[in-house]
């Protein structure tokens, strides 16, 4: 397989897919969590959008602190397992360029009943957004921006506390939207 880093803890399948891997093979992860004891498989597919604040997204590029991301994902799956009686969990995240409309992340969880499968699935994707060190750069026709997950900033704010100058920078759009200096001279002009 083409995955860059693969960690299996208990029944969990965790894959950080390197750029050459191509589209995520969704069936692989659904089949991984499929189990005769399961009455439900919940899945979440995160897909890339074609516009951000009116700007047309040309492409998206993902990168990761791969060993730490794999560790965090394993820990997140373990936390889901500790919180709900799930049978199996699988999670995959792509790296490199991901075409607009394609899946960048996929989560599947199986459990005896649907409520547990859905709760675990949601927990895993929410934690991916908040704590797994993966970054996405959106490339527009006139610039590019490293995106910032609100979930990460909120958690950081809670952990660091509200030192005044920090609070200002950690909140909202001030630091969220940024056009690279070298990429364009038309800062914020194209909408």
């Amino acid at each position: 397989m083409a995955e860059e880093e693969k960690v299996e803890a208990e029944e969990d399948l965790i894959e950080i897919l390197e750029p050459s891997s191509g589209p995520i093979d969704l069936a692989r992860y659904v089949d991984y969590v499929r189990d005769p004891a399961a009455g439900a498989i919940a899945t979440f597919e995160g897909t890339t959008r074609d516009t951000f604040e009116g700007k047309r997204v040309v492409e998206l590029r993902y990168e990761a602190y791969v060993p730490m991301a794999a560790r965090r994902l394993a820990a997140v799956c373990a936390e889901a397992r500790a919180a709900w009686p799930v049978l199996r969990v699988a999670v995959a995240h792509r790296l490199g360029t991901v075409g607009v409309g394609e899946a960048s992340v996929f989560v599947a969880a199986s459990a005896v009943h649907r409520a547990e499968a859905m709760a675990a699935c949601r927990y895993v994707i929410d934690e991916v957004k908040a704590s797994v060190p993966i970054w996405k750069k959106e490339v527009y026709e006139n610039g590019e921006v490293w995106k910032e997950n609100r979930e990460f900033l909120e958690r950081r704010e809670a952990a660091v506390g509200s030192v005044p100058e920090r609070k200002e920078a950690a909140c909202c759009c001030g630091s969220k939207v940024r056009v690279d200096e070298a990429a364009t001279d038309g800062k914020n002009s194209a909408v």
Partner: peptide, 28 residues
């Protein structure tokens, strides 16, 4: 992050530690 785990700034470092600067993440 220190040695692949999030760590507060008050953490005391040891020789050969790996310290990562983690800008706001944007996975998903």
């Amino acid at each position: 992050a220190l040695n692949e785990e999030y760590a507060p700034e008050s953490t005391i470092l040891r020789n050969k530690d790996e310290l990562a600067i983690i800008p706001p993440i944007s996975g998903g």
